[in-house]
Design a protein around this nucleic acid. Structure first.
Length: 209
DNA sequence: GCACGCTCCGAGTGCTGTGA
DNA sequence: TCACAGCACTCGGAGCGTGC
């Protein structure tokens, strides 16, 4: 039995992510025709069309939808195995550009310290800060971003998370406010008050209720 | 509003060159 | 010799402008 061509996995990963032969070709540094032939080979190997025309666009078949997450994980694991160099990381000579996604209002506090630390310990490193328009780990999975700073959760097992700090809310109220009367402010008393919710994501309920 | 034609874009394919 | 990639081309769909 001959092993399949594992290079096809990388192409499959890009095709499933881009949902476009032309887009996948650009990302892989190939011509569209070369990527089209690669897709043909993938169709032969998997026995599934994988990407089918829907008007002017291409859409994933149900089988391709099933393969998408598995392929991402396998390719990510392959890369981590192959990139696991035995040579220790040497920051003073490291020449690399890192892209960092940020959520407005959260990580600007970290920029000065981060830039100073890079300049001192890794002068060859360049930092590009990219405003992030949507939540989710897709930017990291696609490799468009190396680092994200913000309120992160449900990122998946392949994304490494590290807590930088814990925040807390501080309430300010007038001496005449009902909460200021009657002793200790409990969560129940706080929740019983009327609230105004401001949500960037259209949520009509918050942690309070 | 509708039909028609033009243009653009993307996928697929035949042919050919290249390297192992 | 074979596999792969690029060039050139065709085909099909969408968008847009124009005339009725």
């Amino acid at each position: 039995m001959t092993d399949p061509d594992f290079n096809l996995l990388v192409a499959l990963d890009i095709l499933l992510a881009e949902e476009s032969v032309a887009g996948a070709a650009r990302r892989a540094g190939l011509s569209a025709s070369a990527m089209s032939r690669t897709l043909t080979r993938l169709r032969e190997v998997t026995g599934d069309p994988l990407l089918v025309r829907a008007g002017r666009k291409m859409v994933l078949t149900p089988h391709a939808q099933d393969l998408k997450a598995r392929t991402q994980n396998v390719v990510s694991e392959m890369r981590s195995v192959l990139n696991n160099s035995a040579a220790p990381l040497h920051l003073p000579t490291l020449e690399q550009t890192f892209y960092s996604a940020y959520q407005r209002g959260i990580c600007r506090n970290f920029w000065p310290a981060l830039i100073c630390a890079c300049a001192a310990q890794a002068p060859g490193v360049k930092l590009n800060f990219v405003a992030k328009s949507e939540k989710g780990p897709q930017f990291l999975r696609d490799g468009n971003v190396d680092l994200e700073i913000g309120v992160l959760k449900n990122m998946g097992p392949e994304i490494r998370l590290q807590a930088l700090f814990r925040d807390r809310f501080v309430g300010v109220l007038a001496p005449t406010h009902p909460l200021a009367q009657g002793g200790q402010i409990t969560p129940e008393r706080y929740a019983a008050c009327e609230h105004v919710i401001v949500s960037r994501h259209g949520m009509v309920r918050g942690p309070v209720g």
